[in-house]
Design a protein around this nucleic acid. Structure first.
Lengths: 239, 239
DNA sequence: CCAAAAGTGTTCTTCGTACACCCATGT
DNA sequence: ACATGGGTGTACGAAGAACACTTTTGG
């Protein structure tokens, strides 16, 4: 058979290969509103329609590297919180060709990104609730990403990835209210958050939100990592 | 360029395609012990070494259909609990060729499967703690699957998928003890479980475990589905 | 009658939740 | 001086955690 004569990097020749892509659901949080970064699709079919940011996975890169590459190309950002969401592999999902997409979601500090770069690529921040219909199955990806974000934010301190490194408690509460679409009691929220002892109090105030100003905090990642290894569970809600 | 002459089912021609496979981490639970179904790899490289059950994803099937297909081929089972775990896409993960694998994990009632079929394919149940080294990155997949199973079993009633449809409370507790590798207090476990009111008490006893015999129960899936839609949270543990 | 597993209640502590007022400051 | 958002404490009820004995029955 021809199989034995093939080089070691293709022993599976009779099998069919498939296009593999990645799409990124990029969350941001600005002025109390949860936002999503989308842009205009660069390839046919549906060239020009609104789409998540994505790319084909190249032969020499892993899927998460592809996702980081495309995120960096468009925002100029590195070291972003990003996680695999799930794979979308319906046979009919993309009329352009049989193509699976390994979706990733990312959380970015909305003021950090390179605005010029974003504009150059025609990227747009949409309020989450005001998103138009996107191309292919991207709407489903977004729904899935939101429920993942909700689940994750209950048990892991990922909300901080959406806030500036220095943030106030009211800001943090507003973020949770935006993610979970419900209002929370100020006193209980603060008490619970403080009881975790994972915030580092700073001697600065942020006066942009009120005349009195609110104290700024930093999240203590190192302490969290240590506690996590001992089985500690970050959790702001019971349910 | 040749691109414009291509049929609509391949508009991405300059991009490279990649082999897409799926591997299944199949959990079972037998006599108080968590087990995993593995078998001997059917293709080169490493033909004959122990491996998870897998297959290439064909051009005309979704990844989860491929996973169900291969699970059915080997166990004869349909309608199994199965979920996508994650994608493994390191460039170097498979020396046979550039190939990504979309891993799935499945929970099966260990007495349900077709034993002949399993034997015919050279499949073997291994105790989870006594697994030898498997091929490629399958060891990592297994670790990931176990932590997913743990996380999921805390908040969703998936443990029942590993037990016979009729089961006893002590059986169920042993399952949780096996999954979480810790002993649990009988009284508190039973109290918590019963307070959920999701078990249907039967008038039968299972006497295989003791002389006294333990009452059998069924899980009330319909009720659970209803409650879940109202935001109910199945949870046997706080942490 | 005894070994072996099934089944059951109470107390204490912790945590969640509901709820209302004073504080600091810029205009 | 006042409007605006920031910050704080207490009391009640629910749920988790610790803990030991009785019941059943086959051999």
């Amino acid at each position: 058979m021809e199989q034995n004569t093939l080089p070691l990097n293709d022993l599976y020749a009779p099998e069919k290969r498939i296009y593999v892509a990645t799409d990124c659901i990029i969350f941001g949080f600005d002025k109390g509103i949860l936002k999503l970064l989308v842009f205009e699709r660069r390839v046919d079919p549906f060239k020009g329609t609104l789409s998540l940011i994505g790319s084909f996975v190249k032969p020499n890169e892993a899927a998460n590297d592809a996702a980081r590459r495309v995120l960096n190309e468009i925002t100029g950002l590195d070291n972003i919180f990003m996680e695999e969401l799930k794979t979308y592999s319906d046979v009919e999902r993309d009329p352009g060709a049989r193509c699976i997409s390994i979706a990733h979601y990312a959380l970015i500090r909305i003021d950090d990104y390179d605005k010029e770069l974003v504009e150059k690529h025609g990227a747009i921040w949409y309020e989450f609730d005001k998103l138009p219909k996107l191309v292919l199955d991207h709407d489903i990806m977004i729904e899935d990403a939101l429920s993942r974000l909700r689940r994750k934010a209950k048990f892991y301190p990922i909300g901080f990835e959406l806030l500036p490194k220095k943030f106030t408690i009211p800001q943090f509460q507003k973020l949770y209210e935006a993610i979970f679409q419900q209002t929370l009691d100020t006193r209980n929220f603060r008490k619970k958050l403080m009881s975790l002892k994972l915030l580092i109090a700073l001697d600065e105030k942020d006066k942009s939100g009120s005349k009195k100003g609110a104290f700024l905090y930093k999240f203590d990642y190192k302490k969290y990592k240590r506690l996590q290894q001992k089985g500690f569970n970050f959790s702001l809600f019971k349910n």
